[in-house]
């Protein structure tokens, strides 16, 4: 697969790699929302964590880890960049097509952008569930 420069850049210099604690830690943290999507046997798993400033309701930090191809890594890296500073609603407005466009993903890699959108929705839904916020009608529908 030959990739465009933006994918290569995100792949080689991934932004915001990491997490806000172990799986057990983040489960109990109310200010952190976790999205874990994909499956190892499908060849990609994305983990996206958002840390929300509970006073302002804005996403103050986002971290990712990804098992997957170059496009999957680039898509999740980009998602963390875009999420920072956004409100939950603004985060939910991110669409996979925007990721495709920004990274110039080839057609066979569109599923990577879908997975990134799923991860965003899952992380926000997790945060909302932990804090007793009403689930967005849209987020309840899993893909």
């Amino acid at each position: 697969m030959s990739y465009g420069p933006k994918i290569i850049d995100h792949y080689e210099n991934p932004r915001n790699v990491g997490n806000f604690g172990t799986q057990a830690d983040v489960k109990t943290r109310k200010d952190v929302g976790v999205g874990l999507v994909g499956a190892p046997e499908c060849g990609d798993v994305m983990q996206l964590q958002i840390k929300v400033d509970q006073a302002t309701g804005k996403i103050e930090d986002a971290k990712f880890k990804c098992f997957g191809c170059g496009s999957a890594i680039a898509s999740s890296s980009l998602a963390t960049e875009w999420l920072k500073g956004k409100s939950l609603d603004e985060g939910l407005a991110i669409k996979n097509t925007q990721i495709v466009e920004e990274l110039s993903l080839p057609p066979v890699k569109i599923h990577c952008s879908v997975l990134a959108e799923d991860a965003i929705r899952a992380a926000i839904a997790d945060y909302k569930a932990k804090n007793g916020l009403p689930a967005d009608a849209d987020t309840a529908q899993s893909r």
Partner: peptide, 24 residues
């Protein structure tokens, strides 16, 4: 592996075959 959520989970002693994955 430093990027891999699966490697973290493996290190934390989580059995990956027992996780309910949201396959797609």
């Amino acid at each position: 592996r430093a990027l891999s959520p699966l490697y973290d989970m493996h290190k934390e002693g989580i059995d990956l075959s027992k996780v309910e994955w949201a396959g797609h």
